[in-house]
Design a protein around this nucleic acid. Structure first.
Lengths: 156, 156
DNA sequence: TGAAAAGATGTTATAACATAACATCTTCGC
DNA sequence: GCGAAGATGTTATGTTATAACATCTTTTCA
């Protein structure tokens, strides 16, 4: 149900990039980090920390506990491999890690899919709007909820 | 420490608007709703639900419980009197309730003050960016973190 | 190589945020 | 006053997240 034809490819690519980013920055892409990244990438829907936790438990001999998952998620966030969606308390794989980017998210209320987008025009608008108040932007959280194109075509 | 000269005025104005909005829509501006709105408006910093709860307890004979506060906050949100900042799990008084608006928030990382802004240019950029993906915007959450003008002038 | 340091994970407990479900009380229209 | 609707009280629990400290693993480098 994902918009990509072969979702396996997304996952493989994400793992490859995780590996690459860690290698080049001298960090460890440990087993747990890899598994959490893989679980976040299960679909293009946001993954909840406690769901990841459950899914980890299915694989592992000893059930993982919350800090394990949150630590892995934090690591992945710090390295730009996943994003946190604060309006959903959930996490989503980053589609272009490594590249510096201010991004925004389109969250479909119907199918739940999230897509990450970049728009320099939007980034500029944001900067401008902030600048008008003399405000200096450091980071931003832009989460848009609505209907994705497929769900608009096939109304429920 | 608020950017307004007489913050009492902000509070009074907010309460007046609460009253007005309820009156014109046939809803009740009950004591609890009024008190919660007042507490949210204590400052221009975001108010946390459990802090409001504590502050209510100081006034009240019987300590309020979480649902009381969350219900009041939900009511106030539904009526456009407060906004929820999902990146902070907190609430902030709306500076221009009643008027239809897509707004965004400037959150100062230094002093904690939040200001609500509207920018039709930003709204348009957002719509455009979404439209490029065939996405229909229903609601949006735009929370910008950084340094407000005063905190930029007086760097810590 | 092997001991110290750094980094990662395990473990326990609890903090922080939020809501479901049902009981009771208050207000309003008639 | 009485019934309906709306608001609040109450109990319990669900959900999300982190602090603090113990242990294990990897790296470093003498």
């Amino acid at each position: 149900m994902d918009p990509c034809h072969e979702h396996e490819h997304c996952i493989d690519e994400a793992l490859r990039q995780g590996e690459e980013i860690c290698r080049s920055s001298g960090q460890r892409f440990t087993d747990i980090r890899r598994k959490v990244l893989q679980l976040v990438w299960r679909s293009h829907k946001p993954a909840k920390a406690y769901d990841i936790l459950e899914q980890l438990a299915e694989d592992e001999t000893g059930a993982a506990k919350p800090p394990t998952v949150y630590r892995a998620l934090e690591f992945l966030q710090d390295n730009g491999l996943v994003h946190r969606l604060s309006s959903l308390n959930a996490f989503i794989g980053c589609t272009h890690p490594g590249k510096q980017h201010q991004c925004y998210f389109l969250i479909c209320r119907i199918c739940g899919d999230v897509s990450e987008c970049c728009s320099s025009a939007l980034t500029r608008s944001l900067q401008n709007a902030a600048a008008q108040s003399g405000f200096t932007v450091e980071s931003s959280c832009v989460e848009i909820s609505g209907r994705c194109s497929r769900c608009s075509e096939n109304p429920a």
